[in-house]
């Protein structure tokens, strides 16, 4: 364990190792570490921003939902109004139609009645003449009374 040339050899090795470490070992490792630290910091900042964005988006969504609800209520209200209006219109139209149909029916009935009345009158006249003929055949001279019969016929 006395001092000898080993000292020199080891000193040279030491210097070379430190130089190698300085040139080829330290920089890449330190770069990787620092790069990662930067990325982590960026990631954390991004996360913070994302949380803020999310909050904003939620507030916006709530607002929009409120608006949408209001609009929907408006639409429903106006629809209800319109429905009532349509129902009323339909009712009025139906009433008018009914009245028209009833009037038409009554007119038809009247016409039919008039026609039947005319028919009946004609038949009564025929019957009356036939009855009168039967009565008159016995007592009246056809020639003498033909003017009266003719008058009757003309009257009918």
């Amino acid at each position: 364990m006395n001092i000898n040339a080993t000292l020199l050899g080891q000193t040279v090795a030491f210097i070379i190792f430190v130089w190698f470490c300085m040139k080829f070992v330290w920089p890449p490792l330190m770069n990787a570490i620092e790069e990662r630290q930067k990325r982590i910091a960026d990631g954390l900042a991004d996360a913070d921003r994302a949380v803020k964005d999310l909050e904003l988006a939620q507030a916006k969504a709530t607002d929009q939902l409120k608006d949408a609800k209001a609009t929907a209520n408006e639409i429903i209200e106006s629809a209800n109004k319109r429905k009532a209006q349509i129902v009323d219109e339909a009712k009025a139209e139906a009433d008018a139609e009914r009245a028209k149909i009833i009037a038409q029916g009554q007119a038809e009935i009247e016409a039919e009645r008039n026609r039947v009345k005319e028919d009946l009158r004609k038949q009564v006249a025929v019957l009356a003449i036939a009855g009168a003929e039967k009565i008159l055949e016995r007592s009246i001279d056809e020639a003498a009374h033909s003017d009266i019969v003719n008058k009757l016929v003309a009257e009918l």
Partner: peptide, 10 residues
């Protein structure tokens, strides 16, 4: 001792 001394000398 040589090893430790050489590093110390460095």
């Amino acid at each position: 001792l040589n090893i430790t001394f050489s590093m110390a000398i460095g």
